[in-house]
Amino acid sequence: NPLPGGCSLLEIERITQSVVKSHIETSQYSTEELKRMAWTLYNPEETRSYQTKSAEVMWQQCAIHITNAIQYVVEFAKRISGFMDLCQNDQIILLKAGCMDVLLIRMCRAYNPINNTLLFDGKFATPQFFKALGCDDLVNAVFDFAKSLSRIQMSEEDMALFSAAVLLSPDRPWLTDVLKIQKLQDKVYVALQRCLQKQGASEEKLAKMVSKLPIMKSICNLHIDKLQFFRLVHPETAYTFPPLYREVFGS
């Protein structure tokens, strides 16, 4: 039977393997490691010490962690078959526009819904832990998103393919070869659909995943707004943020 988008079964199998392999190879922590760490929480004293840091120090630390994670996302993208065939202009646009989305999807692996905690610097932390950042709305939005995504119970394969589909969004502004990216994304979505079918997942699972896209966009925008405000208030500190962070989130 012909598959949607005119792609062959072999092509779909190939892209599934490539995306899942690159996701696993470029995840900062394996599922086993995350399981082992899930109950390693910051104690009240440690939490207080983070809460009483200055906004500058806490922002700097978060920027470093995000930058580290971005490097893995770049590597994830590079290993998706077809991504490196795009022109470098498009590769950069897709990464700049989509890496925060991918980070948000990946983050749900490092989220514990039982106690609403998230892995940060080796231990699990509550939303209150990030008080010093001075952006409770952003922090709460990130935790709420992680909670809602964890409810979908995505497998590693789902997560890999969903991340790739989001990264390969052909509607990002200033792209050169929209059609090529559209074709790649179509293939990834077909692969994701097949993967869900194989698992015997309900039809709505994909719809549930796709319904998270606007929330992800609003979190990305909120992060940029907060960063711009931080830059205004603390220009010297913002200037010392890792160069890659400044490149990705600069205008």
Binding site: Q71, I92, V248
Partner: peptide, 20 residues
Amino acid sequence: KEKHKILHQLLQNSTSPVDL
């Protein structure tokens, strides 16, 4: 290119931080 120097480098590098 200058504006995205590091991204360009990361995309061109065959050995990435992940491998190191």
